[in-house]
């Protein structure tokens, strides 16, 4: 692996995503990307007794789809990198207890999807692992319960609020030839421009996304025209125009190729206020929809920038502002290589 300037890694070896698995909840299945997921649960509780068990079921199923598609078993995996939004990332810990793969727990809030993918690629590139399984999950009810109000309370809705995606995404990163290649990763810095409203994550996270995207173009010397799509994690309808404006002011116009996974996963009529958020938001869009488009070659090169708000429910009550981060991974279609 070689470092291209400070924040961007370019992988020396060809690193591929062998297969992905995606599972979503009922509301995501009614969205425009419904056909691109491996499974959609009909109820929010996924047939489990509690919300936490439901979230575990999501991650468990996403992983089993992923392994089955790659034709691999849990024992073939050298490492398991996973994260979620729960306190102490319990969903990931408990799944690691079941699959017994050597485990590194990760947390970057909603940016964990690309954090685990970038880290997996780096471990495979450096030769410390041959096959790495990475996974993230989020569940609307577990997140509501932990960060906002009890699920049956019904807190007042706010047009800047985002809606946590119920789902899980998993991917296997390997050097074995596959259809989607991981080319580079840009690791983000923590940015806090003084926003403290936990119901307005898009505004808080936009500067972090802008910083990572700007740095990526500085590091690689590319232009937005080199990408078919630049997909941000969960900036929603509030944060996306802010991101574009932040970059235009610096002379970088990505509006033509920019999309936000929080806006892709739901249709505007769905009751999600500003759009989707959560680890699973960028994960299921990337591993479900974008992975297919890359594999079939209709997208050549994309830059997925997952954004995360690194807060907990006490820090906002203590009037602290929200530190935010964004990690980006460049994915390329490897269809023409084969």
């Amino acid at each position: 692996m070689s470092q291209v300037r400070k924040q961007t890694w370019r992988f020396d070896h060809p690193i591929y995503i062998a297969a992905t698995g995606t599972v979503v909840g009922p509301l995501e299945a009614q969205g425009p990307l419904s056909g691109h997921f491996d499974k959609a649960y009909k109820t929010l509780d996924c047939g489990e007794k509690t919300w936490v068990e439901a979230e575990r079921a999501l991650m468990r199923r996403a992983i089993s789809f992923c392994l089955a598609k790659a034709g691999k078993a849990e024992g073939d995996m050298d490492l398991f990198l996973a994260g979620d939004l729960m306190d102490q990332t319990v969903t990931s810990n408990f799944i690691a207890r079941e699959n017994r793969i050597p485990f590194l727990g990760m947390f970057g809030a909603c940016s964990t999807s690309m954090e685990t993918l970038a880290q997996s690629a780096q471990l495979v590139d450096s030769g410390f692992a041959k096959n790495v399984l990475c996974a993230v999950s989020s569940h609307n009810a577990t997140a509501e319960r932990q960060f906002r109000y009890p699920t049956e309370y019904g807190g007042p809705s706010n047009p800047t609020q985002t809606f946590t995606v119920t789902g899980a995404g998993a991917a296997i990163v390997t050097r074995e030839k596959g259809k989607v290649r991981i080319r580079e990763a840009t690791i983000g810095r923590v940015i806090d421009w003084g926003m403290g409203d936990p119901n307005n994550m898009g505004t808080a996270m936009a500067p972090a996304a802008a910083d990572t995207i700007w740095t990526h173009f500085q590091d690689t010397g590319r232009t937005p025209e080199d990408y078919d799509m630049i997909v941000t994690g969960d900036l929603s309808s509030v944060g996306s125009p802010i991101l574009n404006e932040l970059l235009i002011e610096k002379g970088l116009d990505i509006t033509r190729v920019h999309q936000d996974s929080g806006l892709m996963i739901y249709s505007p009529e769905q009751p999600v206020n500003a759009g989707g958020s959560g680890c699973a938001c960028s994960a299921v869009v990337t591993y479900g929809y974008l992975f297919k488009r890359l594999a079939e070659g209709s997208l050549k090169r994309i830059f997925v920038v997952a954004t995360g708000a690194l807060l907990n429910s006490s820090t906002t009550k203590q009037k602290d502002t929200i530190p935010c981060i964004a990690h980006g991974v460049v994915l390329e279609s490897a269809k023409e290589e084969t």
């Binding site: 706010n158 047009p159 800047t160 421009w193 003084g194 926003m195 307005n200 505004t203 500067p207 309808s237 509030v238 125009p241 802010i242 404006e245 932040l246 002011e249 610096k250 500003a274």
Partner: peptide, 20 residues
């Protein structure tokens, strides 16, 4: 000018959705 960390919370108000 939105790229101004100190005054971001003020300057970004123009981008906020209107509360009905």
């Amino acid at each position: 000018m939105l790229n101004d960390p100190k005054n971001y919370s003020e300057n970004v108000k123009a981008f906020q959705p209107r509360i009905p």
